[in-house]
Nucleic acid binder design. Structure first.
Length: 518
RNA sequence: GGCCCGGUCGUCUAGUGGUUAGGAUGCCGCCCUUUCACGGCGGAGAUCGCGGGUUCGAGUCCCGUCCGGGCUACCA
């Protein structure tokens, strides 16, 4: 039988990193086995429903490049793929009736107040809390009939068999045992007629012929009631795979405080999707050997359930940064420039940086100015549209020294502006020396005469000045020149950078630097 | 409180009875070099949560214990 997995998010908000990891595993597993990946929207909670959420999921998944074989946006033979629509189609009412007929579910007419009272009583007496029988589990049918006749609201609960041990098979942990006397009778159909997760997800997994259920480990505690439901219906069970959670660097659940948790925020920060997937896949899974840098194809080829880890993993942004830098270096410069341009054009990039507020700046560094980051990126994009070859060369020189796509804005800035921003410390350190005026005038003269440059020619200028003036090291010549041309003390190799700037830009910059000396 | 899950360098991990406990990241140093990076080399960093047992031998098996986490909703 072919593998069928499903990603079943609840449309209550954003798609976060933990969920991304689950879909990634679904996708890798399906691809590895030549199976199908299905998207199902679990919108059974009207109170938490968020209309923008489904679009966020589809957008995010499109960005990372995870595709589905069936889903609400593309259809398929097992639709509809939204649970609200499946409810309208009568799917859940059909199956809940069957379950009642089988004696495995019953109507319960308790009011919320009564349930609260019960819970309080249980807590005070240090008893397990939950609905273990109440007034309705074993009520006489005539009593229920009377309540229906009165029009009392009710829920439908699963009748958990008592005095049994349920052994749930988990693909990662093996056998997990539960005493059914600790399992309250869960609500399957709510007062508003909507099914709960416990019912809808299991019915749908069966109907959609899901073979493997990958979900978060928070479901482990309720897995026995799901396990039992399959037994009650006499259905074959899927393989349950409870994936460990991803936590922040402090060991707590990943949240806003750890930086981005929304997947599109990582996109906006300039992480490449391949690097993100590579990184995410390695939290809670490993190919079993020492490989770490892996392409999507390699991930698919290597992915199997045996490599899954039981313990929670931490989200280490430093490792993501390393992987992302590695990815940037792997790309051809043409491919990289296209990736950068696509990145700048994406709506989430502008939205993110324009609203960015640096809440915890790095020590000893000035806080990141979000709107400024954005302006630099736009400048790069616009320049690339008018002079692609020039920007391409600038990117080529910076490719070795950045970690994110966003970094190119600042790294390439001096190539793109007419008047570079002079770093005060750089000027102070290198423009004070006597020979600098002579050096800049010398360069200005030679550059003014030139039509074109080359790396060799640029190098020869510097070397000539150094030897003519008795410098046995290039430093005192190189550094002031760099400052004059870029305003900074760091950056690509001077000769390469001079070559890319070309004679006329160098001329303008040297003149401006010379003016500063006086 | 009850039930359940987890615990190998700071972090991600390899490891399934016999290894100097391996790799990666991060950190430090050296090399490369005109700077910052990249890259290369090297270093520090893990009494495998702790305590018992089983065994000739345990990170690996068993028991206990501690710590962390999840569930304990008419949320998923």
């Amino acid at each position: 039988m072919s593998v069928r997995v499903r990603f079943a998010p609840s449309p209550t908000g954003l798609l976060h990193v933990g969920a991304l990891r689950t879909v990634l595993f679904d996708y890798l597993f399906a691809q590895h086995n030549g199976g199908q990946n299905i998207l199902r929207i679990e919108d059974t909670d009207r109170t938490r429903y968020n209309a923008d959420s489904e679009k966020e999921f589809v957008d995010t998944l499109a960005w990372v490049g995870i595709e589905f074989d069936e889903g609400p946006h593309i259809g398929g033979p097992h639709g509809p793929y939204r649970q609200s629509e499946r409810k309208e189609a009568g799917i859940y009412s059909h199956w809940i009736e069957r379950l009642i007929e089988l004696g495995h579910a019953y109507m319960a007419f308790d009011t919320p107040e009564e349930l609260n009272e019960m819970r309080e009583y249980q807590q005070i007496n240090k008893m397990p809390t939950g609905y273990f029988g109440g007034d309705w589990r074993d009520a006489d049918p005539s009593k229920a009939a009377a309540a229906i006749a009165e029009g009392k609201p009710y829920v439908i609960r699963q009748r958990i068999p008592r005095d049994r041990t349920v052994v749930v098979e988990d693909a990662i942990r093996g056998r997990v045992e539960f005493d059914t006397n600790t399992l309250p009778d869960p609500v399957l159909i709510k007062g508003d007629g909507m099914p709960t997760y416990h019912f809808a997800a299991m019915v749908d997994d069966h109907l959609m012929e899901i073979t493997h259920v990958l979900r978060g480990e928070e479901w482990i505690a309720t897995s026995p009631i799901h396990w039992l439901l399959f037994e009650m219906f006499g259905w074959d069970r899927p393989v349950f795979v409870h994936c460990p959670v991803i936590v922040g660097t402090d060991g707590k659940k990943l949240s806003k405080r750890h930086g981005a948790t929304r997947v599109l925020d990582y996109a906006a920060q300039g992480y490449d999707k391949e690097a993100l997937k590579n990184f995410i896949a390695l939290i809670g899974w490993s190919p079993g050997d020492d490989r770490e840098v892996m392409s999507q194809q390699e991930l698919i080829a290597a992915f199997d359930l045996k490599g899954l880890q039981a313990s929670p993993g931490r989200f280490d942004i430093e490792k993501l940064r390393w992987l992302n830098g590695h990815r940037i270096r792997q790309m051809s410069t043409e491919e990289l420039l296209d990736t950068i341009l696509e990145y700048v054009k994406a709506p989430y990039t502008m939205e993110y940086w324009m609203n960015f507020v640096d809440e915890n700046p790095m020590p000893n560094k000035k806080p990141t100015d979000g709107p400024e980051v954005w302006r630099r990126l736009v400048r790069l994009k616009e320049k690339a549209e008018t002079n692609r070859s020039y920007v391409l060369e600038a990117v080529r020189l910076e490719q070795e020294r950045v970690q994110t796509l966003a970094d190119f804005g600042e790294a390439c800035e001096f190539f793109l502006v007419d008047e570079v921003f002079f770093d005060e410390k750089a000027v102070e350190k290198w423009f004070g020396q006597e020979h600098v005026g002579k050096l800049l005038r010398f360069l200005l003269e030679r550059v003014s005469e030139a039509q074109t440059a080359s790396v060799e020619w640029c190098e020869s200028l510097i070397r000539q000045f150094a030897s003519d003036h008795g410098f046995d090291k290039l430093g005192p010549v190189v550094h002031p020149t760099r400052v004059a041309l870029t305003g900074k003390t760091v950056g690509p190799g001077l000769f390469e950078l001079m070559n890319v700037l070309g004679p006329s830009r160098m001329k303008a910059r040297l003149e401006r630097a010379l003016a500063m000396l006086k």
